[in-house]
Amino acid sequence: MTTCDQKDLFTYVLRLGDSGLVLGQRLSEWVGKAPMLEEEMALANMALDMVGQARNFLSYAGEVEGRGRGEDALAMHRDVGSFSNLLLVEQPNRDFAYTMVRQYFYASFAERLFEQLQHSADSRLAGIAAKAVKECRYHARHSGLWLVRLGDGTEESHQRVARALEDLWPYTGELFEMDEVDRRLLEAGVAADVQAMRTEWREALNQVLVEARLPLPSDEIWMHSGGRIGRHSEHLGHLLATMQILPRSYPDANW
């Protein structure tokens, strides 16, 4: 147990859990309709990794909160306004290019985030991060390879991935935001310094985009913000409705 504000720690861990959960749910929407069997399995594997990470974070968040809410209560019995995931991960799949761009943006970021969190002063957080970092590294490699293939592929695949890049780019600013909670926890040695990761993340992205024959978008544009404090796009409500309907309709359902 570390010496930091438990409310801060709850907020911090919940944010990590929510982003994992929402991205996992999004990826799982591909099951049954991926472009090919091989990719269907890859997407399902990634979805399971994300949900697994979310379970670890949400269980821990529940314990930190100390109000008897477990992973299921936090995942299934909260409304849109209480979710604190990044806006990027709630964006719809639209097409395969969108899904891969979104995945690369998040995984390449999460890989760096968890690399640092492995050394967090909070040993529980460090343990979860140590497991998650390997998964995110694989996700970044898989989606990065697809960006190259799509960008350097056919005329249509190039157009689609270019559009996805442009549309999703304004959601990347939020990845590197830090508020008071982050700063206090960073000082306590618990949180990671995401602001400091931006240059490296951008450089890694640029290497992929050069190979994919795609331009690196400019940071000098307006960026969306607010997911981390519960202000979401319209898409999250629909996602939660699908995800939560069963446990909400049958609160004691068991299987």
Partner: peptide
Amino acid sequence: SLHAADAAMAIQNARDLYCR
């Protein structure tokens, strides 16, 4: 066996299909 565009993708797909 599996489908893939090249060797790198084949290894990734093999990981996802046969090493779960």
